[in-house]
């Protein structure tokens, strides 16, 4: 798998010759299939959206009523946004996401720099140990992690969600590969000027790595935002829950308010859709890059 940073997903597809003759039939078929499937793929989201703008009393009656009822209302959104829960969940998701990304990118780029550029005894062992980490399936460790976080008295705080997600092994490899490919001239020059390793790392390596750090940051952020299992068991106070946990556990209190539930789902997804629209390229590159590595 040689392409990781080289995917230009946002760029138009390469122009492929031979589109005459058989190409026409092909293009028409392609369009039909693509349009049909993308409509099929959009239906669930559109359905949730339609429901969320329908009155709770109507949506409780089921699908036909929702289809027919076109007295749209934003009641459900107002109810949710006026209540405090969703804001607290946004806060938790945002704070844990940002802090995890910051800490994770810091320690992972540092480790990758050491593995890529610095010579020291035990480097191979360290490398091997970290390679092994790729195989450790995170969620399987939920039980011992809970015990550990309990011993560290971190349960019920954001740190219980943040710290276990800081070691992103795949990010280390993505960074290491990137650093390996960076020309060494700048660093050499800085070294001759007497700059410390930290200085070189900070002012030469990191600035050159901005694109890959951006892509990995976004992927990590999305991963932390969407993580359900860890916060589900370590964050118990409804005020401190992240979006997925809030949606999953506090839904019982909506009773049968179907529209509210769909609105909460839309609100929970919205920040990521916005993130995607802004950082399309980084999201796609990061996902593909880390997937190919993983």
């Amino acid at each position: 798998m040689s392409t990781s940073n080289g995917i230009s997903a946002a760029a138009p597809a390469a122009r492929i010759p031979g589109e005459k003759g058989s190409g026409r039939g092909f293009t028409v078929t392609a369009w039909v299939i693509l349009i049909t499937l993308s409509i099929l793929w959009l239906i669930p989201s559109l359905w949730a959206m339609k429901t969320s703008f329908t009155d709770n009393g109507v949506s409780a009656l089921g699908a036909p009523a929702i289809l027919e009822g076109w007295n749209l209302t934003t009641d459900s959104y107002e109810t949710l946004l006026r209540g405090g829960d969703i804001w607290n969940w946004y806060l938790a998701s945002f704070v844990t996401g940002v802090l995890t990304v910051f800490l994770s990118m810091l320690v992972c780029t540092m480790a990758a720099y050491a593995l890529s550029r610095l010579e020291f005894k035990g480097r191979r062992w360290a490398m091997l140990l970290i390679v092994m980490g790729v195989m450790i399936p995170g969620n399987v460790l939920i039980v011992p992690l809970f015990a550990l976080l309990n011993q560290l008295s971190l349960l019920g705080t954001y740190w219980a969600v943040i710290l276990p997600q800081v070691p992103q092994v795949i990010a280390v490899f993505v960074f290491k590969r990137f650093f390996d490919g960076l020309p060494k001239e700048f660093e050499e020059a800085a070294r001759i000027d007497g700059a410390s390793y930290w200085r070189i790392f900070r002012s030469v390596v990191l600035p050159l790595s901005r694109p890959v750090i951006a892509a990995m940051s976004i992927v990590t952020f999305v991963g932390v935002w969407n993580n359900l299992m860890l916060p589900l068991f370590v964050l118990t106070n409804p005020r401190l829950m992240t979006i997925p946990v809030g949606l999953a556990t506090v839904q019982g209190s909506f009773g049968q308010r179907v529209s509210d539930i769909q609105a909460s789902s839309i609100l929970g997804a919205l920040p990521l859709v916005i993130l995607f629209l802004i950082f399309q390229r980084q999201v796609v590159e990061g996902v593909a890059g880390s997937g190919l590595k993983g």
Binding site: L103, L106, V107, C108, M110, A111, Y113, A114, L115, L118, E119, F120, K121, G122, R123, A126, L129, I130, G133, I136, G138, L141, P144, L145, L148, L163, P164, V166, P167, V169, V172, S196, Y197, W198, F201
Partner: peptide, 23 residues
């Protein structure tokens, strides 16, 4: 350089061992 290498690796090593290896 060796010292720097370990220092750069250390923060990751701590969280890695604590939250991945130890569990």
């Amino acid at each position: 350089e060796a010292r720097a290498g370990w220092m750069f690796l250390l923060p990751f090593a701590i969280v890695y061992v604590l939250f991945l290896i130890w569990p």
